[in-house]
Amino acid sequence: MRKFGIIGVGHVGVTIAYTLVTKGIADELVLIDTNEGKSVAEQLDLEDAQARLDTTTKIKIQDYKELKDADIVFMTAGKIDAAKETGNRWAEFEYTTASVKNVAPQLKASGFNGIVIDTTNPCDAITQYLQQSSGLSTQQVFGTGTFLDTARMQRVVSEQFDANSKNVAGYTLGEHGDSQFVAWSGVQVNSHPLVEFAKQQGKELDYSALEEEIRKGGWAVYQGKGYTSYGIATCAVKLAQAVLSDAQLECPVSCYSEEFDTYIGQPAVIGKHGIEFVNKIQLTADEQAKFKNSAETIKEKFATI
Results as ranks from 00 to 15, higher is better:
residue 5 G to I: 03
residue 7 I to Q: 08
residue 12 V to H: 00
residue 13 G to I: 01
residue 17 A to V: 05
residue 18 Y to C: 10
residue 20 L to S: 02
residue 22 T to P: 08
residue 22 T to D: 00
residue 27 D to A: 06
residue 28 E to R: 13
residue 28 E to C: 03
residue 32 I to H: 02
residue 33 D to N: 12
residue 34 T to K: 15
residue 36 E to F: 00
residue 36 E to T: 04
residue 38 K to G: 05
residue 39 S to V: 10
residue 45 D to E: 13
residue 46 L to K: 10
residue 47 E to M: 11
residue 48 D to C: 11
residue 51 A to V: 08
residue 58 K to W: 01
residue 59 I to W: 02
residue 63 D to H: 04
residue 64 Y to V: 00
residue 73 V to K: 03
residue 76 T to M: 09
residue 84 K to Y: 03
residue 86 T to S: 14
residue 87 G to N: 13
residue 87 G to I: 04
residue 89 R to T: 11
residue 90 W to A: 05
residue 96 T to P: 09
residue 98 A to L: 07
residue 105 P to H: 05
residue 107 L to M: 11
residue 108 K to H: 04
residue 108 K to Y: 00
residue 109 A to W: 05
residue 109 A to L: 12
residue 120 T to K: 00
residue 120 T to N: 07
residue 125 A to E: 02
residue 125 A to V: 11
residue 126 I to D: 02
residue 128 Q to N: 09
residue 128 Q to R: 12
residue 129 Y to E: 01
residue 131 Q to L: 08
residue 135 G to R: 13
residue 136 L to P: 08
residue 138 T to Q: 14
residue 144 T to A: 11
residue 152 R to F: 03
residue 153 M to Y: 02
residue 156 V to R: 13
residue 160 Q to T: 04
residue 166 K to A: 14
residue 167 N to R: 14
residue 171 Y to N: 10
residue 172 T to G: 09
residue 174 G to W: 00
residue 177 G to Y: 01
residue 178 D to Q: 15
residue 179 S to T: 12
residue 180 Q to M: 14
residue 182 V to F: 03
residue 187 V to M: 07
residue 191 S to I: 11
residue 195 V to N: 14
residue 197 F to I: 08
residue 201 Q to Y: 02
residue 202 G to D: 04
residue 203 K to V: 05
residue 207 Y to K: 15
residue 209 A to V: 10
residue 210 L to C: 11
residue 211 E to G: 11
residue 214 I to F: 00
residue 218 G to W: 00
residue 223 Q to T: 08
residue 226 G to Q: 10
residue 230 Y to H: 13
residue 231 G to F: 01
residue 234 T to L: 12
residue 234 T to N: 14
residue 238 K to A: 14
residue 238 K to D: 11
residue 238 K to S: 12
residue 243 V to C: 06
residue 243 V to K: 10
residue 250 E to G: 05
residue 252 P to W: 00
residue 255 C to T: 09
residue 258 E to Y: 05
residue 263 Y to H: 11
residue 265 G to I: 01
residue 266 Q to W: 02
residue 273 H to S: 15
residue 274 G to A: 05
residue 280 K to T: 12
residue 281 I to S: 09
residue 281 I to G: 07
residue 281 I to C: 09
residue 283 L to A: 06
residue 284 T to E: 07
residue 287 E to I: 11
residue 289 A to K: 15
residue 293 N to L: 15
residue 295 A to V: 08
residue 300 E to S: 15
residue 302 F to V: 04
residue 304 T to Q: 15
